[in-house]
């Protein structure tokens, strides 16, 4: 049906405080992040800009403020405001056997490689609350590789590491995790791995016998060993390209030759100079083997 097409200007609304001054906003945000770094030591300066801007504005609006500079004053003078902002800026989304297809492919294509090693060192970088660490431990146990494996699970955030160590996950997510486990090629009954306790699902502590949880900052800390597998899924998406590239150098230096690098399912090496150093195993999964 015909509708009159108005050629009217589309910007009828009055520009408000959000009027478009991207350069000025960028200055304010960079000053805030610099201030946070120098005063509190948290380094968000090389985080992906659009995402950090969005999260800063959420806090600004929630506090009834009207500019990044106003937030800066509060954050620098009130540690409680920094605490709030820290929560806004950390994203800890994870699940057991997240992206089941990945685990299935890992079993088929990476486990045979690992069988050829007498000892297997795995680094789970940015492990958050640990769900994916327990998932990997279960997989390795089912493949008979756990006893010769050591998993170094690191995160920048001490609070989530404590939760990872405790190994208690919400009972209400067990159905979802069980579905994931089955689709990930799980070989047993998922409920064998936990007991309902303390209002949650307490996972078999033997699963963390060979896991070392420790704080590590990808932005500032160096390599601490040589690994056969490095997993870093959906962590680097929050970094800008320069920092991503820096972390990829760290991973490259920390991987043994023919070691395996695992990224999140929508992450890529395409825009990184390290692309040529790796071969993708079994696309579309983001499992790469260091070949040079």
């Amino acid at each position: 049906m015909a509708v009159p097409v108005a050629e009217a200007p589309s910007s009828g609304a009055e520009p408000d405080r959000q009027s478009f001054k991207p350069d000025l906003e960028r200055i304010e945000i960079e000053l805030l992040l610099e201030g946070i770094f120098r005063h509190y030591g948290f380094d968000f300066r090389a985080y992906a800009y659009a995402s950090i801007r969005r999260r800063l504005w959420k806090r600004i609006e929630e506090e009834g403020l009207s500019s990044v500079s106003a937030l800066q004053e509060r954050v620098l003078h009130e540690p409680e405001m920094m605490e709030k902002l820290l929560l806004d800026l950390s994203i800890n989304v994870t699940a057991m056997f997240r992206d089941p297809g990945f685990y299935q492919t890992f079993r088929e294509h990476v486990v045979p490689l690992l069988r050829t090693y007498p000892f297997i060192r795995i680094w789970h970088a940015g492990c958050s609350t640990g769900e994916e660490v327990y998932s990997m431990a279960i997989l390795l146990r089912e493949e008979g590789l756990y006893d010769r494996s050591r998993i170094y699970a690191t995160d920048i955030n001490e609070v989530v590491l404590q939760r990872a160590k405790a190994g208690i996950f919400p009972l209400e997510r067990m159905q979802e995790y069980t579905d994931n486990y089955i689709r990930a090629g799980g070989k047993r009954s998922f409920s064998e791995y936990y007991t309902a306790k303390y209002g949650g699902a307490l996972f078999d502590q033997a699963l963390t016998k060979n896991v070392v949880f420790s704080q590590h900052n990808l932005v500032t800390d160096r390599s601490f060993s040589e690994f056969n597998v490095i997993l870093c899924r959906n962590v680097l998406i929050y970094f800008d390209k320069t920092l991503q590239s820096k972390v990829h150098s760290l991973f490259y230096d920390s991987l043994a030759m023919f070691g395996v690098l695992v990224l999140g399912s929508k992450e890529t090496l395409r825009f990184m100079s390290h692309e040529d150093c790796y071969q993708q195993i079994a696309p579309p999964e983001k499992i790469f083997r260091k070949v040079r």
Binding site: A48, Y49, S51, R55, I91, V93, I237, E267
Partner: peptide, 14 residues
């Protein structure tokens, strides 16, 4: 999906 200057970033924010 977040549109940045000339490229796209992904995020798992809530």
């Amino acid at each position: 999906v977040l549109i940045d200057d000339g490229f796209l970033s992904l995020s798992l924010e809530e």
